[in-house]
Design a binder for these strands. Structure first.
Lengths: 121, 121
DNA sequence: CTAAACCTTGCCGTTGACGTGAAGGTCAAG
DNA sequence: CTTGACCTTCACGTCAACGGCAAGGTTTAG
């Protein structure tokens, strides 16, 4: 498939896909015309990228982790053991972020609570 | 207290505090010399700002919400009812972020699991 | 065969929360 | 009274993940 089709199926833009390639996250084949050619499994790969990006990982971290994520999401292939540390680091980062989000949400919850109670004294 | 002392106590930098003021989050008094003068409670305010920033709120949203957060965190003063919508919007944003983080962490967990199992077949 | 709809590389623009000097005023210690 | 550690206001720089546009090549429908 070509870049626009992949973008459509993965819910992103061609520009983003070229950026991912520039960052070493994707390595599409090239047609004789110079056009990028993607395998169907690239859809899943891009979805993984987006997921990890939305979790606050940067492209460098994803580039390190991505090779360990198998094409078939349901079958976890033997991953790279030497990356366990990196994985743990990112896992901890995510947990820390979640804790901060929970704390911030608690503050908002208390404000919402106080505001709502005011309407029903 | 002056700006560097506040920065120290709140765990940030003078530059950030000036930025917060520029964005309308802080309104310190001024000495005759032109120096900014902060009340001790500003420490808590800055901590709230940092918390909300780390939760993904931007300074505009915080500027809207911050006036509703009382100095004494344990005593929730009557808040501004007209901001309940804005509060709910941010709350939902946070919840969405937490969900994404959880999903990403689950992916990492499965990779870590697969990697660890490999060492104990 | 031509026009529309793709694709390519290249390169500058954007957004948010600051960092980093520069040029100068202020204050406490010796 | 001077030195050094503060402080002030500009104002430009940074970083990440793209957006957008230009100038050109390719493919496909009619």
């Amino acid at each position: 498939m070509r870049i626009s089709e992949l973008a459509r199926q993965a819910g992103t833009t061609p520009r983003a896909l070229r950026y991912y390639e520039e960052q070493g996250l994707l390595r599409p084949a090239r047609l004789a015309s110079g056009y990028r050619h993607y395998e169907p499994q690239a859809v899943g790969t891009v979805r993984h990228i987006q997921l990890l990006l939305s979790a606050g990982l940067n492209t460098a971290a994803i580039a390190e982790i991505l090779p360990c994520i198998p094409d078939d999401v349901t079958v976890l292939a033997p991953t790279c053991p030497e990356l366990l540390d990196a994985l743990a680091v990112e896992r901890n980062r995510i947990t820390t972020s979640m804790d901060r989000l929970a704390a911030a949400r608690a503050v908002l919850d208390r404000l919402i609570q106080a505001g709502s109670v005011r309407d029903q004294p």
